[in-house]
Design a protein around this nucleic acid. Structure first.
Lengths: 283, 283
DNA sequence: CCATCTTTGTGCACACGTTCACAAACGCAT
DNA sequence: ATGCGTTTGTGAACGTGTGCACAAAGATGG
């Protein structure tokens, strides 16, 4: 999940809940599809089904925008498309820059969904001189040296970071210094930004790990609680033997256990005895 | 943001809160970095800073896993890495398939973060015969016809969908039918799946739209509330004139207004006098 | 104009998530 | 041993999000 850091602690006066904002694009997509089929009106039930949410939730969401429905009939599709677009700020053009034109950056540049809703790729930027000038998705890749000029000339306020993790913070700092106030970060790093700058993160690895967690849980259920019970001894091992004796020993034991486990599981690649590296990271 | 649909309404008995699960990968990454620098222990304050979260939140998160810290000292890095890895199910290998080897699919296949933590790309699948057999990221692309066989032979339980929106649901159905129970969906569609199957969605367009919302809000604040007030007349226009008269007229008027605006704004470049669009951003 | 049917908008209760604040637990020095 | 400084683990208060259930508002037909 990409977690947005809301730059303002409390919700604003006429503020729309963050959860609602996150769903508006979903509604908008469903409504656009209806609009293309020339469907004039839609009920909350139908639209909710199309967007994959609860109908009550949808109605409450819309109630934050105003009373845009007609009881007994539903919502006017065209009007709602306009209202949501306006609320999301999509009635204007947002120039964005993509920094880091590797595999992912190129994919993003080619992604049609970008251009489709008020977002215009103003420039592609990369630090590799070998890439400079090459065409990607119809745009020439420009060098990082030009970053500040590009931001200012195009009045870019949204930046997409698709660089390796190591370069992300520096790129971020430069973007912010040049005037960017919203960042979509694909690099697996926590970016630190000044107040007033929004960062949203998209992390493929994290999404997979969350899926793995649920997957494991499902597998555990299928096998019954036996598995969990079997590993419980080791699992909570540090807990039971701690009664009055030195907890330091327990802690030491835990560390030793971890080392042992790591070493045992560490043979994915690793030839040497580097038991310190957790077994989960082969590369 | 990728929103996970929890396949179970209530949290399980010893269930770990979903919000906590979503943060565990974050902690794990920070801990791994510390581990590589051979840092033996870390305090909740330090680790929280590295992960970009509140220290109290971090401690509460860890408390769901058990009492793994030592008061007055902090957490043993190695042990914590192991515990979180185990909790997330990363101590085992998860074979995944990527379906749809376009720009994005290829980027995902090449993405190092995939392979790095217990996830192994078992196969790349695409419906285009022209791609079949070609090497991407060291793996041969295989045809969709083989999908079911691949899933069964490799015991794949996690699938990544990077196809165009139109093909996503069909691919999803086939994956699920073949035994996949967790899906990471990059296609801009709402997937419907049977109970017991987890879907997480990553939608670049939605992330941008959320950023645009906040960006617009920031711009509006800078210009003062004058802009909001100016457009308020039209904004809530359907509300004020409605007193006792037919609301149908108001609805009709709204529709007409929307149509007019849509028509005026329909040309994406909009040279004319578009006074309807809130002027919160000087483009 | 009235009755009936449909659908919105929302008050309310509950679940979930976050943050504060502090006692208990630990290492360490004396 | 004892006391002191540090850090965890968690109870409790608070804020946010969700879903039910229903009254109000409109459409429709007679």
């Amino acid at each position: 999940m990409a977690s947005g850091r809301s730059h303002r602690p409390a919700t604003r006066s006429r503020g729309i809940p963050e959860a609602t904002v996150a769903r508006l694009p979903l509604y908008l997509r469903a409504l656009t599809a209806l609009s293309e089929r020339s469907v004039p009106t839609v009920s909350s039930e139908e639209l909710a089904a199309a967007a994959g949410v609860n109908s009550a939730k949808l109605r409450k969401d819309f109630s934050y925008l105003g009373s845009y429905g007609t009881r007994g009939v539903g919502y006017d599709v065209e009007y709602l498309v306009y209202q949501i677009s306006r609320e999301l700020g999509l009635t204007q053009d947002w120039p964005v820059v993509i920094v880091g034109i590797g595999n992912l950056g190129a994919a993003l540049a080619n992604y049609g969904g970008f251009a489709s809703r008020g977002f215009r790729v103003a420039a592609l930027i990369d630090a590799d001189h070998a890439l400079t000038g090459r065409n990607v998705a119809g745009l020439p890749v420009r060098h990082t040296d030009e970053l500040e000029d590009i931001i200012r000339d195009n009045q870019v306020s949204i930046g997409v970071i698709a660089t390796p993790a190591g370069a992300a913070q520096e790129v971020c700092d430069r973007l912010v210094a040049a005037g960017v106030t919203s960042i979509l970060n694909f690099a697996p790093t926590v970016l630190s930004v000044p107040d007033g700058v929004d960062v949203r993160k998209v992390d493929l690895s994290i999404e997979l790990q969350i899926l793995a967690f649920h997957e494991q849980r499902k597998a555990g259920e299928d096998l019954g609680e036996a598995v969990a019970a079997a590993s419980a001894g080791e699992e909570k091992g540090g807990l039971a033997p701690r009664a009055k004796t030195a907890a330091a020993k327990a802690a030491a034991a835990r560390t030793a256990a971890a080392k042992a486990v790591a070493a045992a599981a560490g043979k994915t690649k690793r030839p040497g005895p580097d038991g310190d590296v957790p077994a989960v990271m082969p590369a």
